[in-house]
Amino acid sequence: MPRDPLVEVRDLSVRFVNRDIDLTVVDDVSFRLDAGEVLCFLGESGSGKTVTMRALLRLLPPHARIGGSIRLAGHDVTAMSERQLEAVRGPVGAMIFQEPMTALDPVFTIGTQIAETIVAHEAVSWAQARARALELLEMVQIPSAARRLDAYPHELSGGLRQRAMIALALSCKPALLLADEPTTALDATVQIQILLLIRSLQKELGMATIFVTHDIGVACEVADRIAVMYAGRFVETGPVADIVASPAHPYTAGLLRSTVSASTRGERLASIPGGPPDLTDMPPGCAFGPRCVSHGAACDAGVPPLIPFAGGRASRCLLTKEVVHAGQGGGSVSREAHM
């Protein structure tokens, strides 16, 4: 396969360094993403999912230190100057956030903000940019779009604001859309609308999308593949349907079991004991070790590697091989490895 992937990340690590601490928040993250694919980073708070995503565009605070390599549509992001990065942010990768109110500028109208972004990146006139802005608002299905062009962010409802932010992100026709929990703050009836919108736009425009979420339900709705994160590392990667059907890593399995659903009514939930580890005081080996039911002495010897197995999947657990045998014996899906 000679074609370069759109995103190729190798051995990414992110440390937050200041006078007092040197904290590794993301470690040993490698993945690739082709055009038109949807990858979901699934994890709880503090798992490093947002930091990993932001590292792709180097949208991190100044005290962050990035290690490893990030290639985005042929550009080496880690080696770029701030000015070169500006050319990448927008046309190559654009981002949407959880809280559109803080991501949109309150003193400019929606139309102005979108048109300004277009003018900044492309050689077009203001009138052409305004016309494009209108098209974009129609594309994200904002009703009476022409009128909404002149609306300020605070005049829109939560769902419309999120749509406006998506329009803004799409204004430079990005090849990669980065979505940071874009539906977490929304109500159920609005959340599903936005998820369906992102799903259809992604298909229509052939955009690769990275979706950060803590909600397995959201991942099931939008993702092709997911990467489950725990304490800054990928612990399991693979196609979403396979992982949900037969999780390989004990953390993923525990997470799925502890998720409340219609069938758990009246029963005791199988919860994972304890809480996520303190990043300043990580366990010696497997980060999930102290909470794991299958914890053994070998788990503390060192951080287990991400072990690939059939179906394009991988799991950072020493028991992985056994899971594979058991899985194949049961006649589970066996597909061409993705990597």
Binding site: T189, I192, L195, G217, C220, E221, V240, S261
Partner: peptide, 12 residues
């Protein structure tokens, strides 16, 4: 009906 499916095969 707006609830997420929890199953990629049964997407809304």
């Amino acid at each position: 009906a707006s609830r997420l499916s929890m199953d990629p095969a049964l997407r809304v």
